[in-house]
Write a protein that binds this DNA or RNA. Structure first.
Lengths: 157, 157
DNA sequence: TTACACATTTAGAATCATTATAAATAAATA
DNA sequence: TATTTATTTATAATGATTCTAAATGTGTAA
C-alpha cells in the first residue's frame, strides 16, 4: 500500500505546505506506517535513508502537519508523544498493562454535545484505557512493555 | 462547595492511598478547583499555605492519584500537562484560538466499540478541538491566550 | 515519654524531549 | 549566473519531569 509521490505532494499542497523532500518523506512514513510513531522512531528510520537528516526537521515538519490538520498528536499520558496520520473515525485504546496502543473503529459523528452547538469542532478524539484481552486473561504484565503493536486489530491479539 | 476533610480522607483510603497532609491538600485542590490545573498552578497555590512544600511532592502525589484513577491527565497537546479530578461523563473542548479548555456533558456509556468487547475499559476520554463561540464570532485570537476559563460553561462564554 | 522503624517529604542534581538560534545548504527566480 | 528566499542543519538553551540521598514526620511498643 505504498503511496505514490503524487498523492503525497497533493496532500501537502492541499494544506498549503510546500512539498519539500523531507516533508514528503515524513508524510509518507506516517501514511505507510500507521503505528503511532514517536519522533525518535521516525527520525531513526528516515535517517537511514537520508543520513544528513536533523531531528529538528522532524519536529518542525510534524508541528507543521499538526497545525495543518494533516497529523494529530496522540498523548495517552506517559509523555510519549506519538503522531497519527489523520484518518476519520477511529479511536485509540491503550492497555495499562502492556502499553500497546490499538486503533478501533468508531463513529465520531454520533458523538455530539448540545452545549457545543455554537462552537466550531475541527477535530474529535476518543481514547480509552484499560486492559487488552491478552493482558486481561494472561496477566502478562511484562511482555511487550512499551511496544506498539497497534497494527494488530484488537480482536486478533 | 468546600469538601470536608472526612470526605477527602475517605476518597484516598478507598483507593489505598494513605491520607497524608499533603495528599489531602492536593486532592482538595483538585476537587474544589476543577479548572484543569497544571503542576505549576497547584504548586504555587499550595506553597502559600505550606511554605516548605516541594514540587516533587506534587509530582509524586499526582502520579499516585493517576495510577489510582483518582485523577486523570488531560493532554490536548501543547505539552501543558493538566490534571483533572475524575468525574464521570464529561468531555473536554480546547479552543485552538484562545487556548481555553471547556468541559461539556457527554454520555460516555453510549460510546462503545464492538472491537473492544474482549477488553477491560477502565477509562474513557473524549476531547474535541476547534473554535469556541467567542473566537468564532469575534476572532479575538489574542485574548485569553493560554488562560483556562473552563469554569464557564460553553454556552455562557 | 522515649526509642525505633518506616513512610513521606525535601532540595537539588540529572535526564530527556522539545524549542530556539544562527549558520549552511538548497531551491526558486530573474 | 547571480540573487533572493525557504529549508535544513547543528548545537545551545529551555523547561518539565524524574531521580537520589538526606531530612523530617508518623506510628508503635516498651
Amino acid at each position: 500500500m505504498t503511496n505514490g509521490a503524487q498523492e503525497i505532494t497533493d496532500k501537502l499542497v492541499s494544506r498549503q505546505i510546500k512539498p519539500s523532500v523531507h516533508r514528503m518523506k515524513v508524510l509518507e512514513y506516517l501514511i505507510n506506517n500507521q503505528n503511532h510513531p514517536t519522533v525518535e522512531q521516525i527520525f531513526t528510520r528516515l535517517k537511514s535513508e537520508v543520513p544528513t537528516l536533523s531531528k529538528a526537521t522532524i519536529y518542525n515538519t510534524l508541528n507543521a502537519f499538526v497545525d495543518a490538520h494533516l497529523a494529530r498528536v496522540i498523548t495517552i499520558e506517559d509523555h510519549e508523544t506519538r503522531y497519527d496520520h489523520i484518518i476519520e473515525d477511529h479511536g485509540h485504546f491503550k492497555c495499562e498493562s502492556c502499553g500497546a496502543i490499538f486503533d478501533f473503529a468508531i463513529s465520531l459523528d454520533s458523538i455530539t454535545a448540545a452545549e457545543l452547538d455554537d462552537f466550531v469542532i475541527n477535530d474529535k478524539n476518543v481514547y480509552f484505557k484499560g486492559l487488552c484481552s491478552r493482558c486481561r486473561y494472561k496477566n502478562q504484565t511484562d511482555i511487550l512493555k512499551g511496544e506498539c503493536i497497534c497494527k494488530q486489530t484488537p480482536s486478533k491479539v
